[in-house]
């Protein structure tokens, strides 16, 4: 009987696993292979070993993009989770407008990135944007801030807009997780004299730990790989200050004959994404196990 169940388990898994292997894993493995050659995407190739990789680490443009992508990825994940959790807690306290608010916070996620880039440009443009026009009206010329045109600020603007777009699902998941915390236990703790903060840290947080794991995963997976927003909003500028790794990879793959160079960059990005994410998940799993005893 056991064997029969296992067999059907395999049958259940088979279709999707085949599809994942053929359409996801295999192309990635091919990319990895081609990153060790000088393939231009069409025609023949020669095997060149690790020279793409040694070149790429000498390229300051690449290492800058790498650091920048890590910064953006981690910051968006952390901020989106902090905001998401904070507002989920607030919304959980049975506010009257809860449903409407929930929808409003989620809608940014529903807007296609091209549209979001257009609308945010409309708002944030240094000369014609509504925000600066308003600031100049209030504070004079000095009020005008270069949201998108200063290499120092543009990264933060991108992070801000990404958090704005990413927030919705994270908030919803936290809300759902919070609803799973039984009221009786909270009340019991209160009766025992715990403060709200203690109750949160020692009761709520551990109980929503799986939700934290999912959300960190979402945040990192999206944050490390952002492409559409920097590409559509600023083209990677100014002075390359918003060029993430994905943008760079795209340019190498499509706008030059150095496809294999781009593929080695994407392999590095994948490895980093895997490492960072597994690190966080392992951490949060440990936290889960440590507090509720597995």
């Amino acid at each position: 009987m056991q064997r029969k169940i296992y067999l059907s388990g395999l049958v259940f898994m088979a279709p999707i696993t085949i599809i994942i292997f053929v359409f996801l894993v295999y192309p990635i493995l091919q990319s990895m292979f081609y990153s060790l050659t000088d393939w231009t995407g069409v025609g023949g190739y020669r095997f060149i070993g690790l020279s793409n990789y040694t070149d790429i680490f000498k390229d300051e443009g690449f290492t800058d993009a790498l650091k920048r992508t890590l910064f953006i990825g981690l910051t968006t994940a952390v901020l989106a989770n902090l905001f998401g959790l904070f507002f989920a807690v607030l919304l959980d306290q049975s506010l009257k407008t809860k449903n409407v608010l929930r929808a409003l916070f989620y809608i940014p996620n529903v807007i296609p990135t091209v549209v979001a880039a257009f609308v945010w440009r409309y708002i944030l443009d240094s000369n014609t944007g509504m925000l600066n026009k308003g600031l100049v009206a209030l504070f004079g010329e000095k009020g005008s801030i270069l949201w998108l045109d200063s290499p120092d600020y543009v990264v933060y603007t991108i992070i801000g807009i990404t958090v704005w777009a990413m927030w919705g699902p994270i908030l919803i998941i936290y809300l759902a997780a919070l609803q799973g915390v039984p009221h009786e236990m909270k009340e019991a703790m209160m009766i025992d004299g715990a403060t709200k903060r203690q109750s949160f840290v020692h009761l709520t947080l551990p109980m929503i730990a799986p939700g934290i794991t999912v959300n960190v995963l979402i945040g990192l997976a999206n944050g490390l790989r952002i492409f559409d927003l920097p590409f559509a909003l600023t083209g990677g500028g100014p002075a390359g200050a918003s060029e993430t790794l994905s943008v760079k990879i795209y340019r190498y793959a499509f706008s030059s004959t150095e496809l294999s160079y781009g593929l080695s960059a994407s392999f590095i990005l994948t490895v980093i994404a895997l490492v960072v994410t597994f690190f966080f998940i392992a951490l949060s799993r440990k936290y889960e196990k440590g507090t509720i005893g597995g």
């Binding site: 990319s31 492409f227 994905s246 496809l259 994948t270 895997l274 994410t277």
Partner: peptide, 16 residues
Amino acid sequence: YTACILIPIQSALIPL
């Protein structure tokens, strides 16, 4: 499967 979530498919566009 969890690891697959992180694979950036854009990197493999040409092989795809």
